[in-house]
């Protein structure tokens, strides 16, 4: 299987599949496919009905994934200005991807979801879900805007906006907290919700918050 970026302002991804090779993605992001490529459904295991309702209604995760099986080519696009990042995950390597950012993944890549708790206050009362992908295999991600990548050492921290996170290594801990505006009661009352990311591992941020209106 080959994954190739069709670069430009709104980039697309072209996946060339050998016979029997498969990729999966969220439903609705296919641009086109060759006729021999067959389409199937990949159900998402785990959690039961209530958990599924929670992550699909409160969160933006899909009910099921769409699977494309070769031979042939299939192209995907997230319909947004940005940058595509291709990753080759090693065996057992885990990454957590922001919802709405996965373009496609090799069928060998295990799919799961991970929940990041909110701060339990208005604005970020509930947390959010991320796609958890475990290698080996290839993964393609769409960043909204440009990508800023960094590596965090063990215990090293950065504070990031919720919408800025594109992906992180599974070993990077993400925790929501209220960032106060200076000291005092007023500063604490006027705090805003941010994510604290603690290493070790890789972090990639995107320059557009996909939840904000943009063009």
């Amino acid at each position: 299987m080959e994954l190739e970026t069709v670069s430009g302002i709104v980039p697309a991804l072209l996946a060339t599949l050998g016979p029997g090779e498969s990729v999966y993605c969220e439903n609705g992001i296919m641009l086109y496919k060759d006729t021999p490529v067959t389409v199937g459904r990949k159900t998402i295991p785990g959690g039961g009905l209530l958990k599924t309702m929670e992550r699909t209604t409160f969160g933006g995760l899909p009910f099921f994934l769409t699977e494309f099986t070769g031979p042939g080519s299939v192209a995907f696009s997230r319909d947004g200005v940005g940058e595509i990042r291709l990753l080759e995950l090693g065996a057992g390597e885990e990454i957590d991807v922001a919802e709405g950012s996965l373009l496609c993944a090799d069928a060998r890549v295990a799919y799961d979801m991970v929940y990041v708790k909110g701060t339990h206050r208005p604005g970020r009362m509930v947390g959010f879900w991320m796609d958890r992908l475990r290698g080996p295999g290839k993964v393609a991600l769409h960043a909204h805007g440009n990508i800023i990548s960094m590596g965090l050492d063990k215990g090293e921290k950065i504070t990031a906006d919720f919408g800025a996170l594109l992906f992180k290594s599974g070993s990077v801990n993400a925790a929501a907290f209220n960032q106060p505006f200076g000291g005092g009661l007023l500063g604490k009352l006027e705090s805003f919700e941010v994510l604290e990311l603690t290493g070790p591992g890789k972090v990639a941020l995107q320059s557009i918050d996909p939840k904000e209106p943009h063009y």
Binding site: K157, I158, T159, Q179, F181, G182, G187, F192, L205
Partner: peptide, 16 residues
């Protein structure tokens, strides 16, 4: 302007 921050290092203090 509030709301524009993408990320910061922990050594950066935030005020108003």
């Amino acid at each position: 302007a509030h709301g524009l921050m993408l990320f910061k290092e922990p050594s950066i203090k935030v005020g108003r």
